[in-house]
Amino acid sequence: MNVLEVKNLTKRFNGIIAVDKASFSVTEGSVFGLIGRNGAGKTTTIRMMLNIYFPDEGEVLFKGSKIEQDFKDSVGYLPEERGLYKKMKVIDMLLFLAELKGKKGNEVNKSALQYLERFDLADRKNSKVEDLSKGNQQKIQFISTVLHDPDFLIFDEPFSGLDPINTNLLKEIILEMKSKGKVVIFSTHLMEFAEKMCDSIAMIDKGKIILNGKLSEMKEKYASKNVSLNYQGNISFLNSHPMIESIEDYGNTTGIKLKNENSDQELLKLLMANNISIKKFNVDEISLHEIFVLLAGKEAANV
């Protein structure tokens, strides 16, 4: 069931369109990825979903009705540019942000201490935020995002600026929330992360949604006629071959798009015949990155 529906959202800044009629929906209990390059309109879309920006056109529906404060209360939001009150004590900071979400009292207090315990920060609860290391401040920020037990988690470029330990910690949090049946929405320009974690995605480019749906269905749709290849040798002879539609070099792998669905075996034979040493030959597999390049055009290749 769709819990969140984004319909024709449009936002202009000084006459420039940042988001252009964006529509997609998020189903219950799923991990949803909003994917696109920097400046594609991801943050603006997310801010409109949270009512931080009012859209110029369109609307966001939560369980069928327009988003109101009750939606905001049920969201935990981790913006790309994170920040805390530097002069506040850690525990006060956490409780204040939970109180803004309408949660206060013993329960949330206890839960805050539990989280601090879990992230090895229990002894720092009375320290000022500014006295914590950057990594520990990020942990406090994660705790503040989930402390009020939200039903929705919205992360904007969650992995930017994180060290490897916190990256893993955040992945853990996302998976834990998913296993609890919460909806996780995150925006990223890192295709591998999205590919590994998302159930559904929406691709946004220049403010327009260029693709959206279930990741599995999407791959199925775009994978046919597609061969993913790892090799050694020179395959430039393929460039002008009649059965090839296009070749994309992604560095580690090369994506070959065929004109006909059933010519993959023929391609394999051709490669063998030309003494290409094949390390991997994968039919019907396409990476999210490849799909993105396919749709957003060649200039998108260096995302």
């Binding site: 949270l50 931080i52 905001k72 209360d73 969201v75 939001y77 913006p79 540019e81 994170r82 920040g83 805390l84 009150y85 530097k86 942000l97 803004l100 979400k101 920020q141 503040s144 919205i154």
Partner: peptide
């Protein structure tokens, strides 16, 4: 608040 970016967290609530 603006320069240390907490404001976006606050505005989400």
């Amino acid at each position: 608040e603006k320069s240390n970016k907490i404001v976006e967290v606050l505005l989400s609530s």
